[in-house]
Each structure stands twice: as structure tokens, then as C-alpha cells.
Amino acid sequence: MNIKTTPTAVALRDPWAMVPSIGNLDAYITAVNRIPLLTPEEESELGRKLQADGDVQSAGRLVLSHLRLVVSVSRQYMGYGLPQGDLIQEGNVGLMKAVKRFDPGQGVRLVSYALHWIKAEIHEYILKNWRMVKVATTKSQRKLFFNLRSMKQGLKSQAGDTETFRNTLTPDEVDVVAQQLNVKPEEVIEMETRMSGGDVALEPQTDDGEESYAPIAYLADDTHEPTRVLEARKRDHLSSDGITQALAALDDRSRRIVEERWLKVNDDSSGGMTLHELASEYGVSAERIRQIEVAALKKMRKAIETV
């Protein structure tokens, strides 16, 4: 006999069976929005079971029914450039902390109690990951960080349509923000500057063509990269000891021809002797000097390969 299962029945057996992986964000959000909400009586009963007996299934159902709350809160922090999936995961951590500490005897609904914990975890995550440099280290600076964006939008709207696209606050607006948040005007200016600055990705964001070029390509110092170091040592050795050993393998005439033709530089940068000058000195034709030169270079090349 086939038994028809309802979302509630599934949730009773395995609270997380209804929730897909957060890797598929759209499917996750759709699923959590379909999870039935708990009545006040059900919430109190589950809370008492968790508090008295440590019932894991009761905790799971409490968390499950409030996942949509985390999704809703996460949307408020989309302006910081962090993935919504990550914000939701951090918010879920805060929700689980709230469920663990939830006391139904206080007469407060879990949604009101959990809101603080969800936001606290998301705030902490944003402060750690939004910038590599810490932007808010005191309580007042944290308050400024999370309120400056919305206050700035409100002040720009009050200024009228002609000022809508102005990016920075005026001195008067800085004073207003400083007074309302109880911070120094200098702190408002510094925080606005940091929040307005754009991040530049060091690593390429794509693998296609020129778009994959990123600052890491020219910021990287490859002078101490092992392969480069070995190549430099080999090159230095060949340019000194290698050439010396290769020349030593030649007879006197061949060595002199190579030195005059390739290694000698006069004061006027004109180089060494020409083929005809060497031919006249040795009493042979210029073609013969060229042949000797070619043979000597081949012999030197073989000698260098064995170095």
C-alpha cells in the first residue's frame, strides 16, 4: 500500500530531507519558502522538548521552520559584494545558536529572539571578509559601518533629484551622520572612503582570452622562481666558464678567428677584424676564413653541450 507523504510528515522523520544543497541557491530558497511554519503552540512544545530532553528532532524542526527568515535577512546585506549563499550559511549558524538558547517560558517567539543571532553572525562574517584590511574594530565603528550606506542613501534622497548621483557626503551631511551615530566626523569620512573604494581581483575571474589577465600577472616576482634561478645559473656559467672551455678546445688559428669575429669589441664599437683582413693576415682566401670560422663554431657548440 502506497502511503502519501506530506512535507510535514517528511519534516517529522528527517527535518533536513526537504532542503536541497545551498549550492543551488534558487532551489534552496524555493524549498525553504515552502516549509510549513509552526504555530505558537507547536513552537512552545518543541522548545520545551529541546530544553528538557535535548531532543535533536525538535531542534531540527525549529531551525527548519525559520530558514526562510535567514534568507530574508541575508537580502539586506547583498550590497557588500559577498555571495548570498555564504551570507545564508552564516545566518543559519546564528539561527542554530538561537535555537539552542531558546526558552519558550519567556513568552517570546523564536523569530524575535533569533533575529539578533542571525544578524550577529552575518555582521561578523562581513567584517572578516568584506575587506582584507579591518574596517571596524570598535562598537561605534561597527555601527557606523552597517548604517552608513542606508543613511547616505536617505540623505541623498532628501537632497532632491539633482543630487541623486552624488557619491560623497557634504560636510554638513558628515556632521549629521556623526551626530546620529555618536562618532567623530573624521571617522565618517574615513569609513566612507573605504566603503567607496573598489576591490581589484588579483587572480583572473575567467579563463577566456584577454579577460583572464589580472594584476597577479605583473605583480608576481618570478626572479626567485626555481626554474628561473637554474636557468640564470646555467646562462652565467655558459657565458663565462663555458665559453672559456669551448675556446680551449680550438687550435690557435681557429680560436683567434672566433675571438676576432665574435668576441672582440674595439673602442669605436666596430668589432674585430673582417674576413678579408684575417684572410690577408693568414695568406688564404676570405672564403677559407669563413669555413674555418663555421667549423670552429660547430666545435664550440658541441663542447658547450657537454659542460
Rank of each mutant, 00 (worst) to 15 (best):
T223R: 15
M18K: 00
H224I: 15
Y80F: 14
K119E: 12
L82V: 09
D251Q: 05
L62W: 06
W130Y: 14
E186V: 12
H237K: 13
E260S: 12
D207V: 10
Y77G: 05
Y113P: 03
V229Q: 13
R101A: 14
I122Q: 02
L297E: 02
Q141N: 04
W117C: 09
M132Y: 10
W262I: 01
D175M: 02
G94C: 11
S21Y: 05
I22M: 02
W262L: 13
A286V: 06
Y77E: 02
P40Y: 13
F102V: 00
M300P: 09
A303T: 07
S150I: 10
A11H: 01
T137D: 13
E173D: 08
K264M: 09
R13P: 00
H116R: 14
A217M: 08
E293Y: 07
A296Q: 09
A286C: 14
E260H: 11
D241E: 07
H224C: 04
L69F: 12
L278S: 08
R34E: 14
Q158N: 14
K100D: 05
D161E: 15
E186R: 12
P83G: 04
T168N: 12
I3F: 10
V188D: 00
V133L: 11
A52E: 09
L38F: 04
I243K: 07
D199A: 15
M195P: 02
L247F: 10
A217W: 10
N147M: 05
A9G: 15
A220I: 07
G154V: 06
L263E: 02
Q57A: 09
Q179R: 09
L95I: 06
V188Q: 01
V135N: 02
V73Q: 02
Q76Y: 11
L238Q: 11
A11P: 01
L46A: 01
R48H: 13
E42V: 06
A178I: 07
S140E: 12
L181T: 02
E260Q: 11
Q89D: 11
T193A: 14
V93S: 08
M151S: 04
S239V: 02
K184L: 09
T306S: 10
S44T: 07
H224E: 15
K152M: 07
E260L: 03
T193F: 07
R255F: 13
V93R: 13
V294G: 15
L202K: 06
I35V: 13
Q51I: 00
V176M: 09
K298G: 08
L25G: 05
K4D: 06
V99Q: 00
L155S: 05
V108H: 07
E121R: 09
A52Y: 01
D207F: 15
S254F: 04
L155H: 06
L181A: 06
S150E: 06
G160C: 08
Q291F: 09
M1F: 07
L250I: 04
L64S: 12
E259I: 11
N92R: 12
I292G: 01
D222W: 15
V265P: 01
A120G: 08
A27R: 10
R109D: 02
Y113C: 04
D268Y: 04
A295V: 14
G60R: 00
S58P: 03
P40N: 13
K134L: 15
Q158F: 15
T193Q: 05
A303L: 03
A295P: 01
D172N: 10
L297Y: 03
Q106C: 09
A217P: 01
E231A: 11
L127M: 11
E186W: 01
